[in-house]
Amino acid sequence: MIRVYDDIIVKTIARILTPFIQIFALYVIMHGHHSPGGGFQGGVILGASLILLFITHGLKETKKKITEKGIAVLSSLGVLIYSGIGLLCIILLGNYLDYGKLSKLLHVVPAEARSLGILGIEIGVGITVMAVMVSIFLNISTGGTLLEDEEDNTR
């Protein structure tokens, strides 16, 4: 499945669309406060953009952009950000995930601090979702080897 898709049109279009999909995904993550969307949706779109690259450009090429290790680190990083923010609240003498306590740190009113806290966790969720989606896709599509089948460009 992840073999190179030897089609110049598809490859080019995918290549050009990818940055826009990604910026859109980031927009979705960041603007969950004002419009529908949020970490998960943005993360999925971000993951989909990478999957698009994997589908069209093959594993070998895309792995230069994002490695397996990177994916694993990112998937942990997201949850770490989330739970880290929670722990930060504990350190600031609040309850777990009590973002209002972050106001001391950020010098804003508690409501704003909560808003920022939500942004922070959305980012965490987005990172994890993106990485995990890519990793599930890769694992399923390569049967777990994360190796590209021998390149077959003859056709």
Binding site: G38, F40, V44, V129, V132, I136, N139, I140, G143, G144
Partner: peptide
Amino acid sequence: LTAIVVMVATLGVALAVVI
């Protein structure tokens, strides 16, 4: 939203098991 996420996660794991 949470349930959909769980759904996707379950789908992923289920497919991995199927493979």
